[in-house]
Design a protein around this nucleic acid. Structure first.
Lengths: 205, 205
DNA sequence: GCTTTCATGGTACGACCGTACCATCAAGAG
DNA sequence: CTCTTGATGGTACGGTCGTACCATGAAAGC
């Protein structure tokens, strides 16, 4: 046997190069040659680890999803234990709002893939269950907040959770598009979050 | 002089072909040759009316903006006079939410341009003042609704208007992405709209 | 009636694309 | 030691891209 190589590491390295190009210059410039140059490997090697360009794109999108999930998880771990639902919701939403360098990078890269998967849905035939999952998570946090009395009781948790996620995505788009800066977006998000929770939470029992 | 031709009409015809391709197959497939074929003209003619591809893209984006503005205006005209602010807001937001065939077409086409202008901002150096304008319009409608007592008085009109627009854009993205159908999006939007207005408006004075 | 000029067609050029093909090197198996 | 095989490099092929170039009708001005 010749030298064995960690395929997963190589694939992540190359896919990372594609994600960097996608974020900085858009997927239009993510050709096999450009990706190879960015990863500092030969084009042949890109072909070797990803037999076709579609496979490379799909894998890169998967890694990107992993990165975003890891960011959300990391931010949730940094909260106290048990974390107040309001902090959980705030941390989750600001994790996907382009406010710092990492979230700008992630959301910009996602945006680069957005119109591609719109135009070629066969790339991701396994329907992404991610967003639905996040919505359910947020709705459950809202329900918990209602039961402890910190969130208004008359809220519909499902509709509110859907709205919060859509609001955050819309704000993120406007930030990336330059129509608003991150602080303004955060102000809008915080304002709407404030309206869901009671001003004076009941004294701890 | 030889036969004169209405340049504006020819440009709209060709740009319309590009917009059709962008909506149906994405801007990746909007090459000069494909646009010419879709418009049923020669490639030379596309070059003649748009000296470069960037000029074609930019003009098409402008025409698309015109179309969307016309749709919003048309829907606003169909309201009674004077139209209640709540109806104005609802009509404006549902105009940009992909609920019927026309709005799906418009938002899909916009989405196709989105990542392009993110990647190549020099395409639109004249910063689009459109969204800010729409936000101000919505904020003013909210203020009017507050003064007549149909909207809650403690709302911040600017932050609320920004939120409504971002919410609608986020909902639109999820509809186009297939994570939600149009009815579900409309349900979320209506729910949030309902929360802004008082349940029982004061009797007309 | 010639000549200018707008509108249009066809095509060629250089660049880049994704991918297939043909090699070579090196390390473990026998 | 040889042979198999995983990892890698280089390159060529067919295709499409945006654009430049060279044409040709046809209508209006003189």
């Amino acid at each position: 046997m010749p030298k064995r190589v960690d395929h997963d590491q190589r694939r992540r390295h190359i896919a990372g190069a594609l994600l960097r190009i996608a974020e900085q210059r858009g997927l239009q410039h993510a050709s096999m040659r450009e990706v190879a140059a960015e990863a500092e490997v030969s084009v042949r090697l890109v072909q070797y680890y990803f037999h076709t360009k579609d496979e490379l794109l799909l894998a890169a999108l998967g890694y990107l999803g992993e990165e975003l999930g890891a960011r959300v998880a990391r931010r949730l771990e940094n909260l106290g234990s048990p974390p107040p639902p309001r902090d959980v919701i705030h941390a989750t939403l600001t994790a996907v709002l382009p406010t710092d360098a990492e979230s700008v990078r992630l959301t910009r890269t996602y945006a680069a893939f957005y119109s591609l998967v719109l135009a070629e849905p066969q790339l991701t035939r396994h329907g992404a269950p991610q967003p639905d999952l996040l919505e359910r998570f947020l709705a459950n946090q809202l329900r918990a907040a209602q039961q402890t009395g910190v969130a208004h009781a008359d809220l519909d948790p499902d509709l509110t959770a859907s709205g919060l996620l859509a609001l955050t995505n819309g704000l993120g788009s406007s930030v990336l598009g330059g129509q608003r800066d991150a602080e303004a977006a955060l102000r809008v998000l915080t304002y709407h979050l404030d309206r869901l929770f009671v001003a004076e939470p009941p004294a701890a029992s």
